[in-house]
């Protein structure tokens, strides 16, 4: 049993990585330029210029002093994806209809409302905070404890906020790029997501004894399943990205940073 939980935990964590990674670049987590936020706009102008006349550019948007380690973990994660996660997810998709998987996805998204809400407040984003509250209320009631996603239809699903973005909002740069084993792409600053999960993720609250003696394994197993379920939607995106890429490590890294920058801007 212990072993099973450990395996499912690993699967879950891996999918986070992958989510943050290839397709995730398109789908999940964010990152930031080393440059200060307030330099963003001028940086963007420069970028446009490079696209153009002078053909020059700032080569990478993020420092990567841990390249050797990151690259190794990237490859290990990739093998894990190909050998374990992808076949598992394909089997899962074969048996579990997309409607059910969507319901699971909705449920967990709704459940993690505290992370998004608190981080809206930390950035004084009143409108977004209100949208989050409205969406959470609507999906919890009309949407039946979050299984349905009614909020989307009423434009009550703003882009998700997290602590990494909050820090970025207040001017903190990425620091440097990190590829976590199983968890995947992140940065020094975006590692703040662990703080989010620890304090604000309801799934994580389960492990406190006062909630009935659950152990951390329950939390890990549930999180793992959630992430695995999320991965089940992304196989095609991940594979398309890998197929189209020449240097997937670089592609994922740059995409991660660009995507995170966009989220911080929003």
């Amino acid at each position: 049993m212990k072993k099973l939980l450990a395996v499912s935990a690993m699967m879950g964590f891996f999918s986070i990585i992958v989510a943050g990674g290839p397709a995730g670049a398109l789908d999940e987590e964010p990152g930031i330029y080393l440059a200060q936020q307030n330099q963003e706009s001028s940086a963007k102008d420069d970028e446009e210029k490079e696209d153009d006349e002078d053909f020059e550019d700032k080569v990478t948007a993020i420092n990567d002093p841990l390249y050797a380690i990151n690259y190794t973990f990237y490859n290990i994660n990739d093998i894990l994806y190909e050998v374990v996660m992808k076949p598992a997810a394909k089997t899962y998709n074969f048996f579990i209809p997309v409607e059910f998987r969507t319901v699971i996805k909705n449920f967990f998204y709704n459940l993690r409302f505290p992370i998004r809400f608190v981080n809206c407040l930390l950035q004084f984003k009143g409108t977004k905070a209100a949208q989050e509250v409205g969406g959470f209320f609507l999906n919890t009631t009309v949407g039946l404890v979050g299984l349905g996603d009614v909020a989307s239809y009423y434009d009550l699903k703003p882009s998700p906020e997290d602590l990494g973005q909050t820090l970025g909002f207040w001017g903190l740069g990425n620091g440097f790029y990190i590829v976590y084993p199983i968890l995947g792409p992140s940065s020094l600053r975006d590692s703040a997501r662990f703080v989010d999960s620890y304090f604000l993720d309801p799934v994580n609250w389960l492990k406190y004894d006062k909630f009935g003696g659950y152990s951390w394994r329950t939390t890990v197993a549930i999180t793992a399943y959630d992430k695995f379920n999320e991965l089940s939607f992304q196989l095609e995106d991940i594979d398309a990205f890998k197929k189209a890429a020449f240097e997937p490590y670089i592609g994922v890294r740059d995409a991660y940073v660009e995507y995170r920058n966009k989220l911080v801007d929003e």
């Binding site: 080569v59 020449f246 240097e247 740059d254």
Partner: peptide, 21 residues
């Protein structure tokens, strides 16, 4: 001349990869 998906510019992403090569 470029497609930007979720904030990620296609030509910029390839540029980084080609530069590495």
């Amino acid at each position: 001349y470029d497609v930007v998906i979720e904030g990620v510019s296609m030509i910029k992403n390839y540029r980084g990869q080609f530069r590495q090569i």
